[in-house]
Design a protein around this nucleic acid. Structure first.
Lengths: 192, 192
DNA sequence: AATGATTTAGTACCTGATACTAATATTAAT
DNA sequence: ATTAATATTAGTATCAGGTACTAAATCATT
């Protein structure tokens, strides 16, 4: 194989590998690619990939940004009645090698809204029946609507429907029960 | 105020400030506390606070942990038959102010095993019926067992049961269908 | 005044880089 | 086959943000 082709291959490898794991030193990359550290530095410069420390730093900042990773943003809530939230999907949520969003992210999004509409801190999921109607793809903007169907025993039945581009993607029914009002008080910041 | 008291105050400040924002250099901390950088270094040593780079690094790693799904560790897999995996829960998975693990983490754990037993890269969840039998608590070691119940149409029905301390915590039935698998090739090391 | 705790200063060294230069393959084009 | 362009390696000086250590200066207390 020509060096030019090897370089291209290496570049693809670097882009992919570093994206999925920013904690890779030039030295390690060099070893993995069987080239010198200098080559890796040239490659990074060509590809516009920042140095290790910057990568780690921005990874930390991103992590810092997303308080709860898959909860989405609540747009509207009528407590004990209904709620709407949105979630922008991205390729951190997909099956490796595809752009199909994993069910667990959609589930978490739905469960979260179901809990929020009941008053998150006071409810637990007991049973969930969920259906993934259509695949969701990375980049899709998911819109979840939840409705409290009825009260049952000491709990609630909440339905959540999620759509992407007007198409139904997910449909779930959550049976929630109130958790006993044993709340541990907020963090005490009073010190002298 | 005595120097000793000032020091104590500074120590409290450092612990709190660095906890809420790890991106603070010794130089910045020194300026904020109106002492020299040396003093800050002494303080950090006394308090066991790691240096800037280590703080940023572990922040990034934590962020990475929470964004990547909680899949647990697979202990045994008989493809298309059954599998076992474990997950150590922690307080990043709980409802705020409690030690009760959120359903979505348990769900993700279960879904993952269900997918793994079928060959993760080639299957999608279509329907899931899940029941949270008992609360799981932070620190619990969850053990999930999955069994393929039967093939159905072009898919599978997989049951997953999760226990903590011998007690059933979760029970779920997943209906999975095969998806066309697309492999991403590893970096080619054949060259010389 | 002497003792011990606290704070500051300074040195050598470390890692994982950047920025740059120079030399050496290897390939493609003429 | 020779040349020009491309790819790779090596080496130097420099940087940031430290560690680890030593020594001196500055209180506060007895």
């Amino acid at each position: 194989m020509t060096r030019t082709a090897l370089k291209k291959q290496r570049h693809e490898y670097l882009l992919k590998k570093i994206k999925q794991n920013p904690f890779l030193l030039d030295e390690e990359l060099a070893k993995a690619c069987n080239v010198s550290v200098s080559t890796i530095r040239f490659d990074r410069a060509e590809l516009g990939i920042a140095e290790y420390r910057e990568r780690v730093k921005s990874a930390a900042q991103e992590g810092r940004m997303s308080t709860s990773p898959t909860s989405g943003e609540v747009l509207d809530i009528n407590l004990f009645h209904d709620g709407i939230s949105v979630l922008k999907t991205d390729d951190s949520m997909v099956f490796e090698g595809t752009d199909i969003v994993k069910g667990q992210y959609i589930y978490a999004f739905a469960e979260n809204l179901a809990l929020n509409v009941i008053d998150a801190k006071a409810a637990l999921v007991k049973i969930a029946n969920v259906k993934y109607v259509h695949e969701a793809h990375a980049g899709d903007r998911l819109i979840a609507k939840s409705e409290v169907m009825r009260e049952k025993d000491n709990g609630f039945i909440v339905r959540v429907v999620i759509k992407a581009n007007m198409n139904e993607v997910f449909r779930g029914k959550f049976s929630l029960i109130a958790a006993d009002g044993k709340y541990s008080e907020e963090y005490n910041e009073n010190n002298s």
